[in-house]
Amino acid sequence: MTEESDAKTRILVIDDGITMRLYYRSVLEAAGFEVEEAANGVEGHEKALSQHFDMMIVDINMPKMDGYSLLRAIRKNPAIHGVPAVTISTEARPDDAIKAFEAGANFYLTKPVAPEDLTEVARLMTGGSPR
């Protein structure tokens, strides 16, 4: 719980779709979270290294570095390996969820995500309500 802290709970959204990033931002900011964006896995990795985050939302299909590769890289890095991560993908492939958990995801959602599901999962992953 982070009630005693003034700092907002920070979420890193990693998705190559601009609309998707804006949507996550709008939903999560309305629920009191602070949001930072990255447009592919490499940029997500850079940002995860250079700033503190309480949680990551990771798309699977992205240019340069996909979500699974990103999660594996992050789980290997002692400085950031513990950040909770939710993967969000299209649902056509049934083994996607298994691959996501093997790569190090803590939760798995499919697109399109309803706003209430997104905030619910974000609260769950970050240990309660933001602020």
Binding site: N40, G41, V42, E43, E46, L49, S50, K64
Partner: peptide, 19 residues
Amino acid sequence: ESMSRMSSTFLPRKFKDVI
């Protein structure tokens, strides 16, 4: 310049505040 628009074969490393 961001490596994220160029290549994924390198690993980002952080030294002080520099990637």
